[in-house]
Design a binder for these strands. Sequence first.
DNA 1: CATAATTGCAACAGCAGCGATGCACTTATG
DNA 2: CATAAGTGCATCGCTGCTGTTGCAATTATG
Lengths: 193, 193
Amino acid sequence: MSETTARPLRADAERSVRAILEAAERVLSADPGASMEQIATAAGVARTTIHRRFAHRQALIEALASSAARQLAQAVEDGRPDTAPPLVALHRITANVLEVKGAWAFALGLPADPDSEAAAIHQDIGQRCITVLERARADKLVDEAADLHWVRRVYYALLGESLHGSPDDAGTDTDTLAARLIDTLLHGAGPRS
Amino acid sequence: MSETTARPLRADAERSVRAILEAAERVLSADPGASMEQIATAAGVARTTIHRRFAHRQALIEALASSAARQLAQAVEDGRPDTAPPLVALHRITANVLEVKGAWAFALGLPADPDSEAAAIHQDIGQRCITVLERARADKLVDEAADLHWVRRVYYALLGESLHGSPDDAGTDTDTLAARLIDTLLHGAGPRS
DNA sequence: CATAATTGCAACAGCAGCGATGCACTTATG
DNA sequence: CATAAGTGCATCGCTGCTGTTGCAATTATG
């Protein structure tokens, strides 16, 4: 909603922007205080090129946050949160989100200020999340008395935890992780009936 | 194990160190890249005083991590993880940890390098956590087939999430938060039988 | 192919933070 | 109370990052 006003970038320039954003994610996730120089090097680009596309350092950060938020929204959308059976949607969404969050952990963990594009997207995602949970509750998958906002927070927390990836789940595919996550979300660690 | 070799600090000096560590937690949790000057001001101390106690910036960070880790270990210990009934221990520990983690969120979120004092303490805490879970499993509170390492990760994630504190739980006492957390850990969000 | 966009490189000024030092003053401690 | 420890302040040199500019070379595009 902010960059779309400018005239279309040349094909190679667009590739540069992508490379910069990806490098920024990589470098900054390893060291949030990394210099523009480090990011530039990682992107295979001169530092001045970054400054041409992103005036300030913070402009780069915001673009990074927006880009990641958009991808996350897409990941949620692909799970058909409004039409697929709740359990199916929940599983698909979880698997998709795990992919995206794994690739853009830093960008998605960024503190978005309230009136940024990223913040709006995240709020929208949060709403869709609530919707899915309501549908799940209607199907008796979630307790009727449950506080859905708390459930969502737990869900988010489990997503975050699933990403840390202990040595055990190195190489475990996203579907398996999603299955465990949802099972834990719905049943916890207690004994099965 | 590292500072104890020096001769005891004068009473007022010790107070300064405390003030510096507390200020560092406050300031750095708001902005991880904050300057020594900002920390010093927040501590009501001259910047040079900080450098007298902590040679490098990183030395301050490590001391902060160690201090917080020790307090966390104490919080766990106070819950009698080895002797109290598992559910009681779990509740006490959770409430205690929520207090400490709330006050030292930044310091405890710090990436501790493997051979630091903090890392050793955290590993020890992790072990005690597993112990409590084993005792809980013996009491049929946790499913026999459960992967305790995953349960612990879920527990950690729930602790982290409980701290974020949505507007709703502003002012909610620690015991209530702990109760909800443990309930969720053991039963999840699914329907109650 | 002609043109305009894109880029690398080199260089610049500016700035903020770090870590150290010396000195005078205050304060805890035996 | 005498001493030693602790502190504030002013100051220094140094380093590293930022953001900008100009120019020449390359490359996509109609």
